[in-house]
Design a protein around this nucleic acid. Structure first.
Lengths: 240, 240
DNA sequence: TCTGTCAAGATCGTATGCACTATTGCCGGG
DNA sequence: CCCGGCAATAGTGCATACGATCTTGACAGA
């Protein structure tokens, strides 16, 4: 009952243009090719992809729903530029969701899935030292695979979203090589799940996510909320 | 730090048409005036609201992102028709999020907010016996108010979504008067939060949500997965 | 020099039209 | 009577056009 993988190649319909643009932009943002705060005019996007504004607009709308771009009415779209505070909030939500996920999964992992999990963990270890972007992506994959196992579409959707946004936050505020998820921690979690110890598995995962957040954000650079900065400087100014 | 209410009337810009239609449809779905599974052609919606398909299309897109409508490529939009299984999944996610929410809030509720909370709980008790739709809406309000207190935009967004969808699920599968949230349980949760007992508050809330789900879904009517039903009937048919 | 006004440009909000896809009912052949 | 193909229809996918709104830079007045 917990062995169904998430994608069984569902029809492979030829992808609407909107979706193509959506995916492309999503990737560009997650790989930091489009840096946080960057302006994304509909015209420019349409032109870049050889489509009309209609497409660009719809893609931007979806990205906004995922929290990867911010959509200001009559102003335009910008790559999401989460504050450190928001970043912490995102990690908090992620921790809550992942705890519930592994609790639900504990004791329902069959042998084949267990093998896949162990393989993924090994792969992580191997690639941890390579490119930073790759490491971030790979780390997310383990978590998303687990999400797929739950068979809970909403949980899966939310996790996809928060994992994406966590990647973004880590890329923004994280120290260079802080993205790796720690193969040892993953292993422990899988152990607990296999043992059917849902309480322990949940606690481990919750702690794991919090730990990743803590590791990454040690080197947090001050975020550029212009208003706040100005307020600070205004307060420091010589009076009168 | 936890006393900021969620909406400080942020500019009140005159609401784009898309948003108006979006809200209207949302309400119609949550009040069950548009029943699950109902077809929602863009033309019809545009005509109904005196707008063009563009508006209808965008509103439907947003509703799809919230999970209130299902969008089938080249087929059209339908009011979401969650299976009982999906309903349980939604409640599971909700339980996880609400647990995290009250844990975070515990010990950070000031006197004024506490009074507001107690007022809301009383109001619930008063209105529980009245209209069913009202009861569902009111029950959600308590939870959403708490979400606003966290100051975590993502948590707030997700909770808004799951509360909506839970309402839908309860309306579909719940017994007539099962929607009330139980003022006593709410009171206990607030007590625990005021006492700063975050572990107890979290557990109470998690249990509370699960309890609501259990109460509501006792009378669960079989969900209409056409394929499955047909398979059943096909198997029961006289052979040859 | 500073400030308020205004016009030009950029960009979004919305409407409309055409092309394409999926569904449905019809019809002829078995 | 049943089945497969075909045409009509409904409805979406996408492009384009126009009006509305916001931003920006220039300019005149204090």
């Amino acid at each position: 009952m917990a062995a169904k993988t998430t994608s069984a190649t569902p029809a492979q319909r030829p992808l609407t243009r909107t979706e193509k643009v959506h995916r492309a932009l999503r990737l560009a943002i997650l790989e930091q090719r489009l840096t946080p705060g960057a302006r994304l005019p509909e015209d420019m996007i349409g032109e870049a992809f050889g489509s009309s504004r209609t497409i660009a607009r719809e893609a931007l709308g979806r990205l906004a729903a995922e929290g990867l771009v911010e959509l200001l009415p009559n102003r335009g779209a910008f790559v999401a530029n989460p504050t450190l505070e928001e970043g912490r909030g995102i990690f908090a939500v992620r921790a809550a969701l992942e705890r519930a996920m592994v609790r639900q999964l504990a004791g329902r992992i069959d042998a084949e899935v267990a093998r896949t999990l162990h393989e993924m963990i090994e792969e992580e270890g191997r690639l941890a030292a390579k490119s930073d972007a790759e490491a971030i992506r790979l780390a997310g994959e383990f978590h998303l695979y687990l999400a797929g196992l739950t068979g809970n579409p909403l949980l899966e959707r939310y996790l996809t979203e928060v994992v994406s946004r966590c990647s973004l936050v880590m890329a923004m505020y994280g120290r260079p090589h802080s993205a790796d998820c720690g193969a040892r921690e993953h292993r422990e979690i899988v152990e607990a799940m296999l043992a059917g110890d849902f309480a322990r598995a949940g606690d481990l995962m919750e702690h794991h996510v919090e730990e990743v957040a803590a590791r990454a954000q040690l080197g947090a650079r001050v975020d550029c909320d212009v208003r706040a900065v100005l307020a600070d400087f205004a307060a420091q100014m010589p009076k009168e």
